[in-house]
Design a binder for these strands. Structure first.
Lengths: 107, 107
DNA sequence: CAACTATATGAATCCATATTCATATATTAC
DNA sequence: GTAATATATGAATATGGATTCATATAGTTG
């Protein structure tokens, strides 16, 4: 495995990078990151998000769909409401991401 | 700290989410992720990247600048060449990201 | 000095995706 | 059944960011 194997489209490493990019692209957008941040405290339905996050109901639904598509959240319908929560994958990734320190380092 | 503190623009948590988003936006793009992946094996100059990555010299420079701006890489000029390498922050973050498993989980 | 190599950079263009809007679907209550 | 509520969705638009292009800068060589 040389330094550039992640650039050979045939390499497993290249595919890993592509998959990681696809996941991070969805997860790292600020609005969706906020939704994930809220979900770390437990399940929430769309109307609860809509009350607290400064986004339209429609936009929230779109974002939740994207997050669901990459497998970091699931939903469960109960009555009129749809409750969203983190999957194991979602818990794993948000634990990872939210442990990144936000202070600047020298160097 | 309630469930929605990351949505109050005044909260520290909200700022943390914004900073994290800014960093991840840069780091998670596939081309830049490839550059980081290469840099994990040690320092490289722009012309080395250009030989192996399917991107123009100009584009590589732009990407490296973005990565440098968020503090994950530094550069050092030696002769005509500019050598890039990961900062401590860069090592920390790539170690985190590249440990994410790429298999799908059930649920 | 001129010619050459390696890199950086600003502006223009192109493209992906966030956002909006109108509307559809599903569930509940009456 | 109708009305009301919660959510989803597709298409249109707006916007941000990736890519290209032309060119500038800096260091090297002879």
């Amino acid at each position: 495995m040389d330094s550039y194997s992640c650039c050979l489209s045939t390499s497993g490493e290249s595919k890993q990078v592509a998959k990681m990019a696809a996941l991070l692209k969805i997860v790292s957008e600020e609005s969706r990151l906020k939704l994930l941040c809220i979900l770390r405290r437990g399940e929430h339905c769309v109307c609860e998000f809509a009350e607290h996050v400064d986004l339209s109901q429609s936009l929230i639904s779109h974002h939740l769909k994207d997050l669901k598509d990459v497998g970091v959240i699931t939903d469960e319908k109960r009555g009129l409401r749809v409750y969203y929560s983190l999957t194991n994958k979602g818990k794993y990734i948000t634990n990872l991401l939210f442990q990144i320190p936000n202070k600047e380092e020298k160097q």
